[in-house]
Design a protein around this nucleic acid. Structure first.
Length: 424
RNA sequence: GGGGGGAUACCAGAGCGGUCAAAUGGGGCAGACUGUAAAUCUGUUGGCGAAGCCUUCGGAGGUUCGAAUCCUCCUCCCCCCA
């Protein structure tokens, strides 16, 4: 399988340095992407890089994931409006350890010659002397060259510190180091990384006379122009503690048609023919959302698990299908809890419930569904509030009779917001 | 150093003595439609309440029956000239 061709039809190829394809055809090639450990979990934005590595490995080459334990301490200025705040060593180490675990799920570390590897640039940068750096590395690259980069130019008006300015050189040094120690000849990344990557290939050429290559993929966008990978509630993380498998599944399911066609190519490993077939079906019956469902299923299973997917699917059917009180009642406690895992929970005393709690009080004082009674009143008037899937009015009193499994009350605000009240 | 303009609710931005809890737009939330989409339309968007009351217009004072609006001082932002 041809790696470049594979990326091309998947819409994952933005720019590639001349000679890269020849290099890949010539021999098994080691290539890497860098991942900045800015948080203790990957989010779906990172998934693109991971998928590139995965395809690379599929095509018989050797993928390296480089954790930016050192570069993460500096901060990449590329196309960012403002200087980033620096992370502490301790945070970064923690983040690196967490992300490492996640990466291990995606790549094959036991495939012999082309086994994946995870490296941390802190390991070779931490003891490298500044003096050596400016003599051995800095000597080969001119300021003029560095300043000509778009990523730097854009920041000259607003200012960027020497720290951030140095970033590309540090990243270039990584590439050089991997070239020399791992025979790594290709660096890949998002299109915003082109400048940083080419500093690396340039450094390799000038310092060793060797040849290295660059390949970038387009930044993932959304058809409506908003930022990919974010919802109102923030990033979509791979860590199930940060983003529940249910929310994760829902994110993909809710993609627009245009986006789904692109995402299914990027984020699944389905072959071209199968994807085209799915698209055909989708266009015939768009309301069935075959693309979104396939996409969401595939990614959820790979990132989480088959059973997480089943649970998310079941939850979705109950929450968005024609869920009724009877359906809720029919669930056993374990299933019920798994459906509403990750939904905000509030605990109240069973005694209070026996006396009956006015709905207004339940929504504000007993829980944090609304910050004020006025807001709660408003929503009640708009009949946006449901208890156990039944609409309620401002006068409603909630009592123990409404408990599901003798323990739970399901509050709902609008179509999508659920809250669980637990009586104990 | 000199001169000028400004700070209003989540954001932008009107208001320039009472009728201002504060126009309008964006955003948010909800409803209708739909495919849990997009677009569109509708309602709503300080707090407590039945009426009504309470706290808000950078901060602190003052004038007035009454201040987002006038005066004084303070803090911060922007522009022009040197």
């Amino acid at each position: 399988m041809n790696f470049i061709e594979e990326l091309k039809w998947r819409g994952m190829l933005h720019d590639v340095m001349p000679g890269t394809e020849e290099q890949l055809q010539k021999e098994m090639t080691t290539a890497y992407v860098g991942i900045d450990p800015t948080a203790d979990s990957l989010h779906i934005g990172h998934l693109v890089s991971v998928m590139i590595l995965k395809h690379l490995q599929y095509c018989g080459h050797k993928p390296l994931a480089l954790m930016g334990g050192a570069t993460g301490m500096v901060g990449d200025p590329s196309f960012k409006a403002e200087e980033r705040k620096l992370l502490s060593k301790k945070d970064i180490n923690h983040n690196v350890a967490c992300i490492r675990k996640q990466l291990e799920k995606f790549l094959d570390f036991e495939s012999g010659e082309n086994s994946a590897e995870i490296l941390n640039n802190y390991d070779w940068i931490k003891d490298y002397l500044f003096l050596d750096f400016i003599r051995d590395i800095g000597k080969h690259i001119t300021i003029n060259y560095m300043m000509a980069k778009d990523s730097v130019k854009k920041r000259l008006d607003t200012g960027l510190s020497f720290t951030e300015f140095s970033y590309q050189l540090l990243q270039g040094f990584d590439f050089l180091h991997l070239y020399e120690t791992k025979n790594c000849k290709l660096q890949m990344g998002g299109s915003d990384q082109w400048g940083n990557i080419t500093t690396g290939t340039e450094l390799i050429r000038r310092k060793t006379g060797g040849e290295a290559f660059a390949l970038t993929c387009p930044l993932i966008t959304k058809a409506d122009g908003t930022k990919f990978g974010k919802t109102e509630s923030g990033n979509i993380w791979l860590d199930p503690d940060k983003t529940t498998p249910y929310a994760f599944y829902q994110f993909w399911l809710n993609c627009s048609d245009v986006d789904a066609k692109r995402y299914i190519r990027i984020f699944t490993l389905l072959p071209k023919q199968e994807i085209e077939e799915l698209e055909k079906q989708h266009d015939l019956e768009p309301h069935l959302r075959i693309l979104q469902k396939t996409l969401a299923k595939d990614i959820t299973i790979r990132v989480h698990s088959e059973s997480d997917y089943e649970a998310a699917l079941q939850a979705s059917e109950i929450l968005f299908g024609k869920g009724t009180t009877d359906m809720l009642k029919s669930l056993d406690e374990k299933t019920f809890l798994s459906v509403f895992e990750g939904v905000p929970q509030y605990r109240i005393a069973i005694g209070e419930l026996n006396q009956g709690i006015p709905i207004l009080s339940l929504l504000t004082e007993k829980s944090a569904v609304f910050p004020s009674k006025n807001e709660a009143r408003r929503s009640l008037k708009e009949s946006a509030i449901m208890i156990n899937k039944v609409k309620v009015t401002e006068e409603s009193i909630v009592s123990a009779e409404q408990l599901l499994s003798n323990k739970y009350i399901l509050l709902q605000k609008g179509k999508k917001n659920y809250y669980l009240v637990i009586a104990e």
